[in-house]
Simulated assay, not measured.
Amino acid sequence: MPFKEGVISKEALKLESIYDAVDKVSISKNDAIKIIGRTKLERLVDRGLIRVEKSSSNNQHAKWKCNASDVLRNIENYDYGTDF
């Protein structure tokens, strides 16, 4: 677990449980882009921080399946302002 022992809040434990639960779940590249953005997704995949399975074809249009836990772990806070 990435939290310091003795400093773990209930919310942090729940969040870690969610990450563990979706670790075996894959989402499409398009869905991952909706969550964290295209540039960030590609950068994190290149750095090995998001696990990706590409379809067996070796063409540039191969479909990606991204690990949902990795994508969720890399969400950053976004200031939505007061527009909604």
Rank of each mutant, 00 (worst) to 15 (best):
T39R: 11
K24Y: 08
Q60V: 09
I33C: 08
A68I: 01
M1D: 03
T39G: 06
N58P: 02
K65E: 13
I8Y: 07
Y80C: 06
A62E: 03
K14I: 14
R43F: 07
K54G: 12
M1R: 08
K24C: 11
I33N: 05
R38G: 01
N58H: 06
S69F: 00
S28H: 01
G6N: 04
N74Q: 09
E5D: 05
N58A: 06
D70S: 00
D83M: 09
I18R: 03
S9Y: 03
L44K: 08
F84P: 09
I27H: 00
K14D: 15
V25T: 08
I33L: 04
K10H: 07
S56H: 05
S28M: 00
E42Y: 11
K24T: 14
Y78T: 08
I8V: 14
S17K: 13
L72T: 02
L13H: 06
S28A: 00
I27W: 00
E16T: 07
T39F: 03
R38C: 03
K24E: 13
E5H: 04
I50C: 02
I36G: 01
N30I: 05
N77F: 13
Y19G: 02
E11D: 12
V22Q: 01
D31V: 07
K40S: 06
K40V: 02
K63L: 11
E16I: 07
V71E: 02
A32E: 01
K63D: 14
A21W: 06
A62D: 03
A21H: 11
K34T: 02
F3E: 12
V25L: 07
N58K: 13
D46W: 06
E42N: 12
K65F: 09
S17Q: 15
Y19L: 10
S17R: 10
A32N: 01
K63I: 09
S55Q: 08
E16G: 04
S56N: 09
D23G: 01
L49A: 04
F3D: 10
A62I: 03
L41G: 03
E5F: 05
H61Y: 14
S56R: 06
P2Y: 09
H61S: 12
K65H: 08
F3S: 10
N74Y: 02
K34W: 00
E16M: 10
V45C: 14
K29L: 03
Y80I: 11
A21F: 10
A12Y: 03
V7P: 00
L72W: 05
S57L: 13
V25F: 04
N67T: 05
K29Q: 14
E53K: 13
K34A: 05
K40I: 01
E5V: 05
Q60T: 11
F84E: 15
I35W: 02
R51P: 02
N58I: 06
I33T: 07
N30P: 04
S57F: 13
K65I: 01
A68G: 01
H61V: 10
